[in-house]
Nucleic acid binder design. Sequence first.
DNA 1: TATATATTTAGACAAATATCTAAATAAATG
DNA 2: CATTTATTTAGATATTTGTCTAAATATATA
Lengths: 100, 100
Amino acid sequence: MKSAQQSVFKALADPTRRSILKVLQKGSLTAGDIALKFPMTRASLSHHFNVLKVADLVRTERRGQHIVYSLNTTVFQEMTQMLMELFASDAEDNERSKPQ
Amino acid sequence: MKSAQQSVFKALADPTRRSILKVLQKGSLTAGDIALKFPMTRASLSHHFNVLKVADLVRTERRGQHIVYSLNTTVFQEMTQMLMELFASDAEDNERSKPQ
DNA sequence: TATATATTTAGACAAATATCTAAATAAATG
DNA sequence: CATTTATTTAGATATTTGTCTAAATATATA
């Protein structure tokens, strides 16, 4: 089971994804427009978009042929709260029996 | 080249490490005391400690046989600032030439 | 100094991740 | 309806990561 918290931290762990978020701060963009700004294939970027979507850090909207990516506007609040809660329970994943 | 920002986000991406930080919030502990709280070997934990140290999220002090781990007290300020700067330049790593 | 305790380091390995190319899907337009 | 453009999906691969066991290092103490 993957907590929302975990998916957000994972998403933020990659510099390309943080950079995508930064770009989107200036305004929503289509996948293609974002792609112009990054030195990798659209397929690779699509993977990153998906990670950001799973973490609910971005939202999408189809506009004709294009898909427009936007920052989830609650992202900062969420992240701030997440920091406050950084140290709240999030390690249920570790509930295994002790080895050795 | 790995920015300080990158090392912090990477460090926070693992739930065990976030949990270690949470534990240390309540007060400094020796590596052994921390180990009592986690279902993995001390070797594995030592690896996590090292990631946290590289990110400067924890500090260490030897006390006799023991090594005491403490939260770097500036951690919250740093993380808050990091959030503010989340969208400032951090993708120098991506400066490659465009494929295809 | 020998032994016990605490912690880290080294090396191996499986799982996860980031990237690629090629193919598939979706919408617009001639 | 065929073609073009936009984006995603599928599958492959190299790298990174989290974990383990075993060995090494450091300190304390009999």
